[in-house]
Structure formats: structure tokens, C-alpha cells
Amino acid sequence: MSLLENSRKQVFHVLCLLMLAVIAGSTLISIFTEGVQLKIIKDLCMTCVLFTGAVLSIALGATGVPNDVENRTLYPIIARPVARWQYVAGKFLGTFLTVTLGVSALSAVFGGLIYHYQGSFDWFLPAATIFALLEAAVVAAVATTLSTFASPVIAASVSFMVYLCGTIKIGFFGGMLDLATNSTVKLVGGIVYHFLPNLECFNLKAALVHGDSVPTAYLAQVAIYGLCYTVFVIWLGAVIFKHREV
């Protein structure tokens, strides 16, 4: 149901078409030598896949529950033998499936481009896409959970902040925290730091671009981490929504 609803939203079509245009536009860059050009195409396309996943997750996840409450389409559903956690989980899954649809379409075009330029298929691309989707799942979980109690604007803004901070967590945020001297700032910053999702680890763009291999154990750890974080955040959303009066 959420999938049908989300896939009809303008943001889904506009963003997917825009990113397809960016991917198609990347082929126009011919100022570099052939090897570098392929790297740039991979870099640009993977950026599009990651960006689309995150932005769609925020835009769809942050509006799902508030729209249902505002349009009163929520009432007939929760009047059924549906537990609140099932509703929140359903909203999250709907958002995630829509994102999967968009990201898979972009990734398929991206794969076609790589095949065209490289002459062979890059088998690391599906893995990189799956981890991009895992990142989208974490972001969608954060947006859905925030939307269970906040307005769409606040939920989207905070989710976007979490996404931005999460993508620079260890590389930048951690370094900034080390430089802080005030103990209160260090304590509060430390708590925020440890609860922020580590979104950098889902970004396998560098491995795809440079053709490096990533240890399987590391990938398994990232997958477990992504699943745990997503389930935890959705559980939090379910607990909040269970106690919410609608």
C-alpha cells in the first residue's frame, strides 16, 4: 500500500528522472583519457545512487505517517487488528521498497553504462548498490521514526541533518570532537556521536571506482550493523507511536 502511494509521489519521479539525466550526462565528459573517464562515470553514478537513496528515504519516510494522520486514512487501518508496531514497520517497508525500486532502476542504467565503456560487467556494482540500499534503509528508518511524532518538515530537516552528520561521522565529526576542550561539549557531542549512524561505512564508491577489493568480513560486519541499527530505530519509532494518541 505504502509502495503504491509512494511510487505515485512527484518527488520519486522527479528525483529518479533527474538522476537518470545526471547519469546520462556523465557520458558527455570526454576531456579525460579513457581510464579516468570510466572512473569519473563510476564515481558520479555511484554518488547519484547514494544521493537518490538517501533523499528519497527522507522525502518519503518523513511524510508517510503525518500524511496518513492528516488525511485521516490512518483510522480505518489501525481500527483493524493491526498493532501499532506493524503499522510503523509497514510504513518503513513501503518507503524502503519504493527507494529500492528507484535505486535499482538507476543502478541498472549505471550497470549498462559500465558494460558499454568497460566491455564487461562490474560484479562489484550489485554489492555496492546493496550497501547503498542498506544506507537508505538506515536513513528511511530515522525519517519514519521521526515522522511518528514530528511534523513532516521537522522530520525531514532532522533526518537530513542526521544523514549529513552520518556521512562525515568518523572522518570529520570525530576529528572535530577530539579538538573540543569544553567537557560539557565533549560529553554531549560524544553521546550524539555514538548514537549517530555511521553512514560512511555503507559507501563503497571508492572500491568500485578504484577496483579495490573489500574484505568479506568487513562487509558482513557492515551488513549486521546496518540491520541492527535499522531494526533498533524502527523499534524506537514503534514504541513512540504505540503511546501516541491519534
Binding site: 568518523i170 555511521n198 560512511e200 561505512c201 573489500v214 568487513y218 560486519q221 557492515v222 541492527c228 541499527y229
Partner: peptide, 15 residues
């Protein structure tokens, strides 16, 4: 190349 940095692994386990 975050898979080569220990800080990433330890932070994930910690979380």
C-alpha cells in the same frame, strides 16, 4: 577506503 581503518570497525561494534 574505510575498510582499512580500525576506527570504523570498533565504532560499529561499539554501536
Amino acid at each position: 577506503h574505510h575498510w582499512r581503518i580500525d576506527e570504523y570497525r570498533s565504532e560499529m561494534w561499539f554501536q
